[in-house]
Amino acid sequence: MTAHQVLALEPFLNNQAATTPENLGDGRLNVWRNSLPAQSAPLEIVVDGVPLRSARLDGRGPDNVLCAGQRIEVPGRRWDWLYVIGCGERRVRDTVTWHFRDGTVDRDHFALSDLWEGRSDFGEELALRTDVIHYPFHVQERIGITLWCQRVPVTSRKPLSAVSLPRNPAVHLFAMTLVGHQTGSAA
C-alpha cells in the first residue's frame, strides 16, 4: 500500500502563470511575460496512482511557486518520491534538498521540460497543454504551453522532515505530492 501526502503550496505561491484576456500583462511564466489561459478549475490529476492538485488557475493572482529556495515542512516519516506538476523556462535540471529528521541533509536531481511547445525531454506525462499562449498584449494561437508531471526520488531511506526547493527562477511548480509506503512507515 502506498501513502500520499498532498503538500499545501498556498503559503508559497509567488508567481502568476495564468491570465485572462483582461489581465494578459500580469503573467510571469518567462522573461517575455507569457502566461497560460486561465482554467475553470484547479488541475486535479492522478499519475502512477498519485494524486496531484494545483492551486486555482483562474488568472486572479499567484498560482505557482517560482523556486527560490523555499523550505517546506513535510510529515515526518520515510518518503520515496516527490511527484510534482511543473514546467521549466527552457528545459532545466537542478536539485532539491532533503532535510532529514536526524538533522542531516542530502540532494537529489530533478529535471523538467520546457513549457514552450510541449516536447517532453525527460519522459514526463502531460499535466496540461493549452492551444494558445498569452502574450502581454495579445493571445497567440498555434503556440501552446505545457505543464508536466515529473517525479524526484528520495534516495536516502532516512525519515524526512522538510524539503528545500532549488534557487532557480526557471522552475515553476504547481503541485507537489509525497509518496511512501503505508506499511512500515512509522520510522
Binding site: 522573461v31 528545459r91 527562477p169 526557471a170
Partner: peptide, 26 residues
C-alpha cells in the same frame, strides 16, 4: 546534455537577475 542544462541555468538566472534574491551568490 549536461552542458545544455547548465547553460539553461546560467542563461535564465542572468535573464531574471533583477528579480532574483541572492544573485551575487547564485
Amino acid at each position: 546534455d549536461r552542458v545544455v542544462s547548465a547553460w539553461s541555468n546560467v542563461r535564465l538566472l542572468s535573464a531574471h537577475a533583477a528579480q532574483t534574491t541572492g544573485i551575487t551568490d547564485l
